[in-house]
């Protein structure tokens, strides 16, 4: 009897727990944007802003996934050691590039307006970056990876229809092509970028 009770309690606890932590992609995007916006509007030095933005990026972006997407077909030729090395180099590169780009904005206002479920793995969340004196309104779509609904992750930002992940993929492809497909050349470029 006691065992049955325990099972029921575990079942109930589990279902409540799962429901309360399953994050709706549009709410996930809005809360991520709000967190970033709070940091950007703080009266702290740029380096501190960058460090705090990096923490948000680590929690909310599928950096490993974006990294392998950016490699394109070249990812199929990597051995396990190279994959590990690449993931580390890409994370450093990505965090630097992403946070430096964001740190230039002061208190950006982003409003989530819609979402479109593509399949069980992907939802596109549509948002608007509100216009300022110097810049017109900008449409930003977020490709959210929802395979694990409890832990949605950002995989791409699509600004006015232009995909950042796709741009990065073509940039990496260009570096590989101009170095006869040598992956070490890409490793060196990523390392140099993160160092500077």
């Amino acid at each position: 009897m006691n065992f049955k009770k325990i099972l029921i309690i575990i079942f109930l606890f589990n279902s409540i727990f799962t429901k309360s932590f399953s994050l709706e992609p549009s709410i996930f995007v809005q809360s991520t944007v709000n967190r970033a916006s709070d940091i950007l509007s703080k009266n702290i030095i740029k380096e501190e802003k960058i460090n705090q933005l990096k923490i948000i990026a680590k929690e909310t972006v599928d950096i490993k996934g974006v990294g392998f997407y950016s490699l394109g077909s070249a990812r199929k030729n990597l051995n396990d050691n190279q994959k590990e090395r690449y993931s580390k180099l890409f994370e450093d590169y990505f965090l630097k590039s992403f946070s430096s780009r964001l740190a230039e904005y002061t208190n950006p206002q982003i409003e989530v307006i819609n979402k479109e479920v593509l399949n069980k793995n992907y939802t596109i969340v549509n948002s608007l970056l509100v216009a300022t004196e110097n810049r017109p309104e900008v449409k930003i779509d977020w490709r959210i990876y929802t395979k694990n609904p409890d832990n949605p992750l950002i995989r791409d930002l699509i600004i006015e229809g232009l995909s950042l992940a796709r741009t990065q993929k073509e940039e990496f492809s260009s570096i590989l092509n101009s170095n006869d497909g040598d992956i070490n050349a890409l490793f060196e470029t990523l390392k140099e970028f993160s160092k500077n």
Partner: peptide, 12 residues
């Protein structure tokens, strides 16, 4: 923030 600005502009 580009590692190959030419390739980025071309892609965009």
């Amino acid at each position: 923030n580009s590692i190959d600005f030419y390739a980025s502009v071309k892609s965009l």
